[in-house]
Amino acid sequence: MTRYLIRRLGLAVITLVLLSMVVFLVASVLPGSVGRAILGPFAEQQSVDNLNEELGLNGPVHIRYLRWAGDAFRGDFGESYKFRAPVMDFLPGAFVASLKLALATLVIVIPLGIIGGAIAAFRKGRPTDRIITIVGLTLAVTPEFVVGIVLILVFAVRLKWLPPGGSGDGTIGEQLKAIVLPALTLSAILFGYIARMARAGTINALAADYTRTATLKGLTWLQVMRRHVLRNAMLPTIAVIASQMSYLLGGLLVTETMFNYKGLGLLIAKAAEDRDVPMLMASVFVVGVFSMIMTLLADLLTAWLNPRVRLEGAE
């Protein structure tokens, strides 16, 4: 396990460096003058040049990259063009809000997906199975705002149970209410993938010899399910949750815009609209790191649950 851990962490560091390069290159090397974008089309070329100089945009790419990455490493992502204030004034709050939303989504979708998948597996080939599979796959490919519209319409406009948007900055109760609809919207995308893997995993585990042995040696149905079937069905399910992480985080962009939820997604959408490049780079980078960490955690969890990986190199 230690060896696996070290190797996996080493890869994560390399990925992190590559990630910062990708973000920097995509945002900076492409043509388009930042000074011009800020000052508008009627500004004099001289003032555009001056601003570019002041913002440190002149000079070779690799020098600029190293400066940006060095500052970022120390937690300094520069100053927002729009607000004329450090990006770090905005980033932590938005990150925490998005983290809450992502966690709320996982809390909703993981049990639902696993239970849905397991029910479909027990009812394999029957109408229940078909309904769960079709609904799941349809939701998985439907863009977030389609689901969002329906949820707002039903729960906010018609039933008036929940607010149609906002971050609920007030009491915990208000925050919880504000998070439900965006979290359900994101859950809709993930449900199908998780249910499909849980279904396949359960079907495999139900047919496996160890399940028959467990039943034959007299364990109760519940024990067989918990210790043998679900445990083995979990492995591929966790792996698929990890692989969908970047879709979940990409979904924040549209979902937070839809619900005006003040997290990283909304920050990114606003920064893109204002062409606020430092803010945009920093927030996209943070989402990348976020996604990487989630994937890493899921990989480690998979390894820990799977003795074949956990004990690799131990014999």
Binding site: T15, L18, M21, S246, L249, G250, V254, V287, G288
Partner: peptide
């Protein structure tokens, strides 16, 4: 392969947005 892995950990829609902001 390494590069691809780094790129995949970023949601496509975000990288696209980043690029679209610098380009017309």
């Amino acid at each position: 392969s390494r590069l691809i892995e780094a790129l995949i950990s970023l949601p496509v829609i975000l990288v696209a947005l980043l690029a679209l902001t610098s380009l017309s």
